[in-house]
Design a protein around this nucleic acid. Structure first.
Lengths: 337, 337
DNA sequence: TTGTATGCGTTATCAA
DNA sequence: TTGATAACGCATACAA
């Protein structure tokens, strides 16, 4: 950081600091002439108003924080991409936080952010089931907060989600139409709202098409590759499903690996469909039928919503919910045998 | 942000602001008793020292900026993941900037960051070929900067790269051993150092194994999916390569799509190997032979290097270069026909 | 249109 | 060990 500050620049130009300051702001009266002179000199001396001083003075940071469960995941990096685009347009900066699905970290991040570092937060919540009332405790002084995709149902704040129930229903129906009778539903955290909603679509589709429901076919997985591999192989051996519906991208991959190892052919012996934002799903072996969420768009919507809150808090209903549509894209992993 | 500040807290506790401030810092004399009392009260009132005020006072932000060409790319999101991990450990925050390979944006970001918002920068440079001397102009007041993966060769600053030359040589050699005689090299920007280095490995391998070099087989691609598709199909029709080596992950995908469309079978008619950090390369059809960079590790190293610079600038040699090894992982896309 | 003076919330220096 | 005070760099209310 340069130590060339507003005072120096004012001295060089034989002006007062207030005049110099005005040149950098839109309001304030200043003649075009002096303004140009000041900006030119600023450029020459490589001067920029110190961000922290400005923010201390103005009480806002022009920064938003984005909290996601993980970074190495197509869905989230694409969502971040969307957020980035909107933020950049508005001249805002983005702080990134990854919780690694760790509740403690999530709480720590949120608490920390209330020190003025960010003007608002966009978050997809961690998978851990815990008391998240900490968000309510901050209520009066809570920063503007927007949830996306993974939300806490009992926290009232604007959110951007997808039509998970319908997508799950369609995906399950599709499996049934393709001839599946024993469809496993793989989930990472049954208690997280998103797992529940998606499961309900699955359950209702089974019922509607008179497929008997077997509780064992709802398989609770983990965040560990290794343990999932064990769980899935065990599941295949014991339960002999002819269809697998995964609520999370990663579990579709795990299913593929398990099937490869067990010599189960997809789609002849097992048909697979999964939530996934993978752009190269067509390149998989076999190409993967996906419920594709509009991930970038979700980011864009979430950011737009947050900026609306920042601009006019009263005008945004706290229970505002934006629902975007996912698409079921049928590929070979669910082809008829 | 709360308006409950250090003054309020001091008033509540009947102490001075300086004493309260001391409770939050490691140095400074303060009795354990009062310190505990202060911290307890702080927790109760949800008080945290205002970040901007602290930073203005301390002249540092505990924030680093990460600039990458794009976010929707496994390599970069994994690298960011690595950076995140180290930064979090050190109590630093991360600002994310995506240039979309746009040189103007890169310059704007860098310039902007000199307003004190960040203490240091970790960057993978944009692909555009341009004058990047702007980095040198900032020299005296330049923020600590670490390059990773994609670097400007003429800017002297610490960097973390991989052994691209060797990897390319090995990958090309592998294609040759598998029987390829006409190997195309796909690159996005020939003039970017990384494209050059990787190309040199390719060229030298050809020479060493007496494969005649055909300039047309070096194909300059773009950042656009559509245009790449046209370029590649054209290339396949006209040049009939029997091997393809892609310097960037995305071009391997493009190659797959083109081969699918043209009914060229991989690996029987065309063998493919590419730089890629895709974790599900084994699931592709066919599974993709990759030069896999230790992406997360690269992030970790880059961050560690930056923190070393922040801690003791004199102790880091500006031309320090950390070289990590990539791995050639052979899969079916280069299997012998 | 420009300048003067004050305060944003914190920390460091110095004095008590 | 604690308190008073100045300063970090900037933006605004007010005066000129």
């Amino acid at each position: 950081m340069s130590n060339f500050n507003i005072k120096e620049l004012a001295r060089v130009l034989n002006l007062s600091t207030s005049t110099v300051s005005r040149a950098f702001r839109d309001n304030g009266d200043i003649s075009k002439e002096t303004r140009d002179k000041i900006l030119a000199a600023a450029k020459e001396h490589n001067y920029q108003p110190n961000h922290y001083a400005s923010n201390l003075r103005e009480q806002r940071s022009k920064t938003i924080a984005v909290i996601v469960p993980e970074l190495g995941n197509n869905f989230f990096s694409q969502a971040i991409h969307g957020i980035e685009r909107v933020a950049r347009e508005k001249g805002y900066h983005i702080l990134i936080y990854a919780t690694d699905d760790d509740y403690e970290k999530e709480v720590a991040f949120i608490r920390h952010l209330h020190n003025g570092r960010a003007d608002g937060i966009i978050m997809s919540v961690s998978g851990e089931e815990n008391d998240h009332n900490y968000l309510n405790e901050l209520n009066q002084q809570r920063l503007p907060l927007v949830f996306f995709d993974r939300v806490y149902e009992d926290i009232i704040t604007p959110r951007v989600i997808t039509n998970d129930y319908n997508s799950s229903f369609s995906a399950t129906k599709h499996l049934i139409k393709q001839g599946c009778k024993r469809i496993a539903y793989l989930v990472i955290n049954k208690n997280l709202s998103i797992g529940k909603t998606r499961m309900q679509g699955y359950l209702d589709a089974l019922e509607k098409y008179d497929i008997p429901f077997d509780d064992d076919l709802i398989v609770d997985c983990t965040n560990s590759y290794k343990r999932n591999d064990v769980i899935l192989k065990d599941m295949f051996k014991k339960l002999k499903p002819d269809g697998v519906f995964t609520s999370v991208e990663r579990l579709a991959f795990a299913t593929y690996y398990a099937c490869y190892d067990l010599n189960l052919s997809i789609p002849q012996q097992v048909k697979v469909v999964g939530f996934s934002s993978l752009q190269i799903a067509p390149l998989l072996n076999p190409s993967l039928t996906t419920v594709t969420q509009p991930s970038t768009q979700i980011g864009v919507e979430a950011a737009s919503l947050l900026f609306k809150m920042l601009a006019a808090p009263e005008q945004v209903n706290n229970s505002e919910t934006v629902v975007l549509d996912s698409k079921l894209i049928k590929r070979n992993s669910t082809a008829k045998s």
